[in-house]
Design a protein around this nucleic acid. Structure first.
Lengths: 208, 208
DNA sequence: CAAGATTGACTCGTCAATCTTT
DNA sequence: AAAGATTGACGAGTCAATCTTG
């Protein structure tokens, strides 16, 4: 069949990545369920997270973030509003758009989830050398860049990291993607460490 | 996310893994679309792949493989039958169950996809040292094992690798999972060498 | 009865059409 | 007009009920 030398190694690697993300996904979903029961789905939690970290809402941005259509995003917001977790009012700058914010209930739920998720991640990754993590991040990022660059996709807004916003992302720097979080994060979002390379380019309230 | 020393590194790593799987996912979907247009979805292709690699069909197994309910799996098979890609007859051993096989059209479509996907993967991973891939596989697998072991999940049939079946899987060996492919692969499937290349898909929701 | 598969009622996604604001 | 959001029709998922075979 396919005769790449090392094709089996590649297949194993793709399988490993698949298994790993699926396991992390399950771990997170499990924490969420422990906190909220069936009240909130993972996708809904992501939306809460986005609202808590950024101020760049609009149904279109929500849609890109969740990876669904604007129609679905509109309904997703609707559900959270009806459950009393987010507030939706029309934006002052542009009355076509919406302005979202967490309710007290939403804030509290997200805080409880973050605590549980952090605890679980510590148990799993706690005793792992940061050098190893850093090395894998770097290699994975380089591979991702080489994949993404094949798609011509000019200058899209990127949501690929899910909720794992980072200050230094190879996709943003090398594949000329526009990072949504970078543009829209809220002032209080903590900055990164990363070897003294301050890069405080962000830290601005957006300018829409 | 959390205040572990190195919490930022961990967050970056999770983001990298997320980005990578999403990029691979898109790459595969893109190859599929180039081959079939909108005729076949990625999930449908996975099902074709499963049928081509194993003989362990049954709507329940299909359901576990795709990560959906048996009801959905039943309908998924139905769609492929109606498109003339899969044959479905009742199994001789157990007339409650079904026996699936690819039609000529299905075989041909899958072959074209495999060729395109293999080509794309070569372009991306072609010049990468196999040692690096192997090292990352190992580390990712160890992390996955430590995550999966937290869920007590006694002796389930495992589909976590998607279609990236491998002979030596840490999950099977260390987390006492039962590997579906290991049990059901077809006789002609080569053992420790290449069997086409994969595709993979982000996991859907868990099966309750 | 238990296991496997299917079907019906319902939820959530997509696309296309529509309405409002710029 | 163009952009943002919402709504209707429909595809594909879930659970619960049912039918057939072991």
């Amino acid at each position: 069949m396919q005769s790449v030398p090392g094709g089996q190694v590649l297949n194993n690697f793709l399988g490993s990545a698949q298994i790993f993300t699926s396991a992390v996904d399950d771990l997170m979903t499990q924490q969420l369920r422990a906190i909220t029961g069936d009240e909130v789905t993972y996708s809904q939690l992501k939306l809460l997270k986005m609202v808590s970290l950024t101020d760049g809402y609009s149904v279109s941005n929500v849609a890109q973030f969740l990876g669904v259509s604007t129609a679905a995003a509109s309904r997703a917001v609707d559900r959270l509003v009806r459950r009393g977790l987010v507030n939706r009012v029309e934006a002052e700058e542009d009355r076509r758009a919406v302005a979202l914010s967490l309710t007290d209930k939403g804030t509290e739920l997200l805080a409880r989830y973050d605590a549980a998720a952090g605890e679980a991640l510590n148990q799993v990754f706690g005793d792992l050398a940061t050098e190893q993590l850093r090395g894998m991040s770097d290699l994975l990022d380089r591979l991702s860049v080489s994949i993404v660059q094949r798609e011509e996709a000019g200058a899209q807004v990127c949501f690929r990291c899910g909720i794992h916003f980072r200050d230094r992302c190879l996709l943003r720097r090398q594949a000329s993607r526009t990072c949504f979080f970078h543009l829209h994060r809220k002032a209080e979002t903590p900055d990164a460490e990363e070897h003294g390379n301050g890069l405080h380019e962000g830290r601005k309230r957006k300018a829409k």
